[in-house]
């Protein structure tokens, strides 16, 4: 309760201040609509928001899972070979610095306009890097005592990877996944701004804005926020389930 209450109170106060500011200051709705207007739109559009969130959420989830699987395999490979590891890190860092979202219009043209694949691809690529880089760092940080112990147990390379490297790198994997889960939603939504299938939150936001229906646009933005939050919280939950030994330390 103590941890939930302060942010809730803060949030309610911010909404009230926002409402008062917009009403008293006569701020035009295309600059900033009042939260009450947005709220009304959220209620009115809740069916559409839900459908759009489902569409964007599916794209984000598929991209997240695909990108993560690839990143885990790549990191495992890179951690086994010294050369591969040394080459891949600067390479991954450079690609990560590129605005990958900018690939969306190019990918859109490569596939049919009714395909969700370009969004999922962009999301997958965006997700790949934080997971890959964090996990690789974790896989390489093996406690030397653990290494020597496994040698005294005459453990094979594969046993060593499964019993020591991977579990030891789980905290790093989840650091990457936490970043990736938020990024996945952002990527999936923003990728829709560049045309293609008109079924997700991003497409709804652009079309509402094009019709100058600003409170409606904001209602879908709120939907995107909730979707991102959901992804993040589910990742946190998974982290707790996957690493019970961390959990016990806190309580």
């Amino acid at each position: 309760m103590r941890r939930v209450l302060p942010p809730v109170i803060f949030g309610v106060m911010a909404l009230v201040l926002w409402e008062v500011f917009v009403t008293l200051g006569r701020v035009a709705p295309f600059i900033l609509p009042a939260p009450s207007a947005i709220g009304a739109q959220i209620l009115e559009q809740r069916g559409n928001i839900w459908d759009a969130a489902l569409a964007s959420g599916t794209n984000a989830l598929v991209g997240l899972i695909g990108g993560t699987l690839l990143a885990v395999l790549a990191a495992l490979a890179a951690s086994r070979s010294r050369l591969l590891g040394e080459v891949s890190i600067p390479f991954a860092a450079v690609i990560n610095a590129l605005p990958i979202i900018a690939l969306a219009p190019i990918l859109n043209n490569m596939f049919e306009s009714t395909s969700s694949l370009p969004r999922r691809l962009v999301t997958g690529i965006v997700v790949f890097f934080p997971v890959f880089l964090n996990l690789l760092r974790g896989l390489r940080e093996v406690n030397p005592v653990h290494q020597e112990l496994m040698r005294t147990y005459a453990a094979s390379g594969w046993t060593f990877a499964a019993k020591v490297r991977l579990p030891g790198a789980l905290p790093h994997l989840f650091t990457g996944l936490r970043q990736a889960s938020s990024l996945a939603v952002i990527a999936a939504v923003v990728a829709e701004y560049f045309g293609g299938l008109q079924d997700g939150l991003g497409a709804r936001i652009t079309s509402a804005a094009a019709f100058t229906a600003y409170p409606r646009a904001w209602a879908f933005v709120a939907g995107a926020c909730l979707l991102g939050l959901t992804f993040y919280l589910v990742t946190l939950l998974l982290e707790r389930v996957a690493m019970p030994w961390k959990q016990r330390l806190l309580s």
Binding site: V145, H146, E148, L149, T152, L170
Partner: peptide, 11 residues
């Protein structure tokens, strides 16, 4: 074998 650090697997 046992070393100066316990070297337990924390997971």
């Amino acid at each position: 074998i046992a070393f100066q650090q316990a070297g337990l697997f924390e997971w």
